[in-house]
Amino acid sequence: MLPVKIQVRELTFHYGSHCAIQGLNLDIYQGEILGLMGPAKSGKTTFLRVLNRMCDLIPNVRIQGSVRLDDEEILAPHYDVDSLRRRIGMVFAKPVPLPRSIYENLAFAPRLQKKPQHRDDLAELVENSLKAAQLWDEVKDRLHDSALKLSGGQQQRLCLARTLAMAPEVILLDEPTSGLDPISTARIEETLTALKKDFTIVLVSNNTKQIARCSDKVAFLLMSRLVEYGVTPEVFMVPKQKETDDYISGRFG
C-alpha cells in the first residue's frame, strides 16, 4: 500500500453563502494519479484551489475541515503558503505563458528561489523540465523566442514544464487538455503517465475517457459532494452509485 500524501477530512468550502464543496473526505496516495471528474460547477476547480491555498486570493471565502500534506495541516492560519505552492504545483485549464522567452518562463521562478546556484545548473534544469514535458525537441532551437508564439498545445506543455521546474511533490492539473486537439492531448497524457513515478498527480477532467485511461484512482464529484471514489477500472466497470453510472455512460452532465 502506498503512503497517503494528502488527506482531506470533512472539507467544506463556501464562496460567500454559496457552498462549493460539502463534507469531502478523500485520500490521495503518493505516486498515483487521482482522476477527478464531475459535471460543470461541481466544485472540481475549487477543490484544487484549496489544495494549494490559491483560494486565499478570492475574497469572502470560508474553509472548514482539514487538509493534511505529509501529515501536516495546510489549512492552519499562519501556514507558509508560498512554500506550500512550491511543493504543490498547479497547471491551469487555460495555458498562460508569461510574456517572456521560453527559457525565462521556466527559469525565473527557480532563480528567485536560488535553487540552482549556478547558471549552467539552471540551464540544465530548464532542459530537463522541457524534456519531461516532452517539449524539448520542438523548442530546443528557439529557447529565447517569445513563449507567446507557441501553439496552444505547446503552451500547455510549457506550463507543465514550468511547474515541473519548481520540483514540486504534487502536481494539480485543471482540465489540462480541454482546449487541445487529440494529438496534443495524447502527448500530455503520455507525459503524465511517465511523470507519476516521481510525482503525485491530481487530474481534473471533463473527459471521462481520459480519466479512465490515465488515472489510478478516480473520484466523482456531483453538486459539491463526493459521490464515488475507488480504483479506476472498478469504478468504470461496476460503479456503486447510480449517479456515477449515469455520468460515465453520458446520460447527464
Partner: peptide
Amino acid sequence: PKEYQDVCFSLGLSKWQTITR
C-alpha cells in the same frame, strides 16, 4: 491579465516578487 498573477502565486512567488517581476 489577472492570470499572470495566478501563475506567479502558483509558482510560489510572494506578492512582492509577483509585482516587481
